[in-house]
């Protein structure tokens, strides 16, 4: 039986009077790839940040590898890594320097080879000695993924990891992630607005709306549930129906 790497129970986050996450409960099993889907402002990033211990929940508990992420997040953080299309690595460092610094932070062994392999994998080798600030957005996104994989994390949190990647690179990035996941049994939690990402990567999806889960299951289950041909259609249906509800 597989064990839960992440266990979220009755999670709630209020920012003043606004509720960003509302009574959210879910778990992610070891080796599973879970996708968080939802309209802008649904609470996906807030959830990811609470999982990293960067935001304190108003209520509820989060356990990652059995550590309570509010009280003692450091043992778990050592086994986790994170990439977001909206975070960048220091722009005045060269590409390899940034990866080297993070490999040291995570205590990676044989870091030189790892850095070279990752740069090769994400087709960044020729930019090895370029200052990070000079990279295009897609190249920076790829570098973020290198940083996220450098520590061979057991749990990888990705916030829109393929935003700004061209379709070819996005496809390659998904394949790399899948390959890595197969090899190492890494668990992945991933938010995305790209339905191809979700379909190809995720074993299971949570649809979030106003901080709550309103549909969950494998892509096929959800399509069946909504009698739809594509996740995009389901997304639009959910988004518009809830707007109507709110109105």
């Amino acid at each position: 039986m597989s064990t839960n790497v992440v266990e979220v129970r009755n999670l709630r986050k209020e920012f003043g009077s606004a509720v960003a996450v509302d009574d959210l409960s879910f778990e992610v099993k070891q080796g599973e790839i879970l996708g968080l889907l939802g309209v802008n402002g649904a609470g996906k990033t807030t959830t990811i940040f609470m999982l990293l211990g960067l935001i304190t929940p108003t209520r509820g508990t989060i356990k990652v590898f059995d550590s309570d992420m509010h009280k003692n997040r450091f043992p778990a953080l050592q086994r986790m890594n994170f990439a977001s299309a909206y975070q960048f690595l220091p722009y005045h460092l060269k590409v390899w320097e940034n990866l080297f610094v993070f490999s040291e932070i995570y205590g990676v062994k044989n870091s030189k080879k790892k850095i070279d392999d990752l740069l090769e994998l994400f087709e960044l080798t020729r930019l090895r000695n370029t200052k990070t600030g000079m990279l295009s957005s897609g190249e920076q996104t790829r570098l973020n993924l290198c940083k996220a994989l450098i520590s061979d994390p057991d749990l990888l949190l990705l916030d829109e990891p393929t935003a700004s990647l061209d379709p070819d690179m996005a496809d390659k990035a998904r394949k790399i992630l899948l390959q890595r996941q197969k090899e190492s049994g890494m668990t992945i939690l991933n938010t995305s607005h790209n339905m191809i990402d979700v379909t190809e990567l995720c074993d299971r999806i949570l649809f979030m709306q106003h901080g709550k889960v309103i549909a969950s299951g494998g892509a096929a289950d959800i399509l069946k549930q909504y009698k739809s041909e594509s996740l995009e259609e389901v997304f639009i249906t959910i988004a518009r129906s809830s707007t109507m509800e709110v109105v």
Partner: peptide, 18 residues
């Protein structure tokens, strides 16, 4: 401030750095 302005702060705080 450097890490803040580079938007690197979350990479730092999401890492096992006390």
């Amino acid at each position: 401030l450097d890490d803040l302005w580079c938007r690197n702060l979350l990479n730092i705080f999401a890492a096992p750095i006390r």
